[in-house]
Simulated assay, not measured.
Amino acid sequence: MTINRWAIDINRDSLTDARIVEELETDLPEGAVEVAVDLYAMTANNITYAVFGKPMGLFGNDQGYWDFFAERDAPGRLPVWGFATVTRSHHEAVPVGTQLYGFFPMASHAVLLPGHAGPQGFTDASQRRTTLPVIYNQYQRIDALDDYAAADHDYWPVFRPLFLTGWLIADQFEDEAGYGAEQILVASASSKTAIGLAHALVQRDARPQVIGLTSLANITYVESLGLYDRVIAYDAISTLDATVPAALVDMAGNAAVTAAVHNHFGDVLRASVVVGKSHWDSVPDATTLPGPARQGFFAPGRSEKRVADWGAESFRSRIEAAWTSFVSLAPKLVSIDKRKGPEAALEAYLETLAGKADPRIGLLIAP
């Protein structure tokens, strides 16, 4: 299919029902800008966005991830992280040619409505986004990012948002004195968010043992990362010492793994933190699990707390320092697979949805 302007529409009620649609150029509203999406990453995290696309109260106001780029009566447009360039502008502070990093739809183009525009970037002020988390609505000018380097360009969409989530999880554990756990079990240890969490944890002076839980097929890869104290396969969870207080961080929402950990540790499990739901078709265990109630982790909420605690500038500088210490490792952690065009974008989405994505690969789409 040779089309210059396209998007991928997804059935909100059936995630496998996705199709490429041609987009026509329309008049640009006053004060708006249009961007051409240059590059974005497709990861398991995007599948979590799709699963939580419909309103579930995640944002405290009965909205979901589909609300960022589509109205309620339209097909879903999946949010992705990446880079874009302004191609048309009706905003004097955001001229044509401005390069941005942020949240975009899985499409070749997007229309944004800059608010509070300045040298660092702007916040999208579209009506449907005004009650959504600020962190998702911020667009940063690439030339204003202190921790950006051209050599790391391809690793930003792959790792930057997921590293931030991992870092924030580690920060919450430190804030909660590790929930009293002496070992942290990280399920889906090969995921990009888990890698960010493990890296953040091992930087801390006093920390519990960090144990990566993964599939048998990914054992060798996860061990090669050098970020976990131990790596074990899911079917070996019963070999862990159930007398040592533990905490579970669940990146993927695999019901069988969750049940295995809860049943093995029981009340010795001090916390069970749910981060993602890339195992979207995993059926939850209908029985009540022993141990603590599961608690969700929402990165924007944690970010807002730390901005309130530390101030925006201190929060930003801490993240920049942490990212700079991590990004040099990125080329050793994944190989980049860059694909081009709408068919490649659709294929990458369906591949990731089906759980076929290789954790050793950083999958990028150049629309």
Score class of each variant (00 low, 15 high):
A125F: 08
A125L: 07
S126L: 15
Q127D: 14
Q127C: 08
R128W: 08
R129Y: 08
R129W: 12
T131K: 10
T131G: 08
T131L: 13
L132G: 09
P133R: 10
Y136I: 03
Y136N: 08
N137H: 02
Y139D: 02
Y139T: 05
Q140P: 02
R141V: 05
R141W: 05
R141K: 12
I142D: 07
I142W: 07
I142Q: 10
D143G: 12
D143Q: 15
L145R: 06
D147N: 09
D147W: 03
D147T: 06
A150F: 09
D152G: 13
D154P: 04
D154H: 10
D154S: 07
Y155L: 06
Y155F: 09
W156I: 12
F159Q: 00
F159N: 00
R160F: 13
L162R: 00
L162K: 00
L162G: 05
G166R: 01
L168A: 14
L168T: 05
L168R: 06
A170C: 11
A170I: 08
Q172H: 11
F173T: 11
E174I: 05
E176L: 10
E176T: 12
G178M: 05
E182I: 03
E182K: 09
E182D: 15
Q183Y: 01
I184P: 02
L185H: 09
V186Y: 06
V186G: 10
V186Q: 04
A187S: 15
A187D: 15
S188E: 07
S188Y: 05
A189K: 03
S190P: 08
S190C: 13
S191M: 09
T193H: 04
A194T: 09
A194Q: 04
I195Q: 03
I195E: 01
I195K: 00
G196D: 06
H199R: 02
A200V: 01
A200G: 03
Q203T: 13
R204N: 13
D205F: 10
D205M: 07
A206M: 06
A206Y: 02
A206E: 10
R207S: 05
R207A: 14
P208Y: 11
Q209I: 11
V210Y: 01
V210P: 00
I211Q: 01
I211K: 03
L213W: 06
T214Q: 11
S215Y: 02
S215H: 03
L216G: 12
L216V: 06
N218C: 13
I219M: 06
T220F: 01
T220M: 00
L225N: 12
G226L: 02
G226V: 04
L227M: 13
L227S: 08
L227D: 07
Y228K: 03
